[in-house]
């Protein structure tokens, strides 16, 4: 198993192999993501029972929670790709990191906006300085920072390494920021409702959530591979295999 993983890792470092294999994986990610998100949506919207305290607005968690999950794990993935780039100098890691950033920013945005919309019936305002929402907002700025840094720096190699370093510094800081924001929140406001952290959800409530989370991760793979494939072609357009590929069509 380990050997298989390391071989896969080394092969993925080759742009040509990545392009070929990602073409095979792409439909699978698409199918899994559409199926799971579709099932989760129908179940979550139509069949899951209503929360006795929050009413039907609790159904927003079926997009909010998976989006928040992805928002956080995509940043960690970006930092891991950054480590791979800086330590092993594997250029494909940067293609992945670059393709991850826009999906991560979108997911953070979704989590923020759905959290705010959920706040209207629950808290009675569009925005509350809730610890989770505030952390999510800061995460959104971290994504924007990495994206802006890549836009600003030239050449591409320097921008790649700089973004990798930023992502690593960010990952070290995120727990500190999260802890400090939680602490600040308890200092200033008594904890009221939070969107997540529900005590003991019945299966009819959490199974659709699980489906959505799986679907969202597959969606990430789908979106990521589409972006990465375009980027690989753009970066490798002078190499022989891209020319072969283009001439075949």
């Amino acid at each position: 198993m380990w050997k298989w993983l390391t071989t896969l890792y080394h092969r993925l470092a080759s742009p040509k192999w990545f392009y070929q294999i990602s073409g095979l994986w792409l439909p699978w990610f698409a199918v899994v993501s559409l199926l799971f998100i579709g099932a989760g949506l129908i179940w979550g919207l139509a069949y899951a029972p209503m929360d006795y305290q929050q009413g039907n607005s609790f159904r927003i968690i079926y997009v909010h929670v998976p989006a928040a999950f992805l928002a956080q794990s995509i940043y960690v993935m970006m930092a891991l790709a950054g480590v791979v780039l800086l330590v092993w100098k594997i250029k494909m890691a940067d293609v992945v990191a670059q393709s991850l950033a826009p999906v991560g920013a979108s997911m953070t945005f979704i989590a923020l906006v759905t959290g705010a919309i959920w706040g209207v019936p629950t808290w009675g305002t569009w925005w509350m300085w809730d610890a989770r929402l505030t952390s999510m907002l800061i995460l959104f700025f971290l994504y924007l920072g990495v994206i802006a840094l890549r836009e600003a720096l030239k050449p591409q190699d320097t921008a790649a390494k700089a973004c990798a370093l930023m992502a690593i510094v960010g990952v070290i800081n995120i727990p500190i920021i999260k802890y400090s924001v939680d602490w600040w929140y308890t200092l200033h406001q008594p904890a009221t409702f939070t969107l997540t952290e529900k005590p003991a959800m019945p299966a009819s409530m959490w199974v659709p959530l699980l489906l959505m989370v799986i679907g969202f991760y597959a969606f990430l793979g789908w979106s990521l591979l589409l972006r990465a494939r375009a980027e690989v072609l753009r970066r490798e357009h002078k190499s022989g295999w891209v020319k072969d590929l283009l001439q075949r069509k």
């Binding site: 009413g55 607005s57 079926y62 997009v63 909010h64 979108s106 945005f109 759905t114």
Partner: peptide, 20 residues
């Protein structure tokens, strides 16, 4: 609460569709 629920889902799915 339909307005809140449906607008959340519509916005999320729209943004995800754009990401594909």
């Amino acid at each position: 609460q339909g307005l809140y629920v449906w607008s959340s889902f519509a916005l999320s799915l729209l943004l995800m569709a754009f990401n594909i």
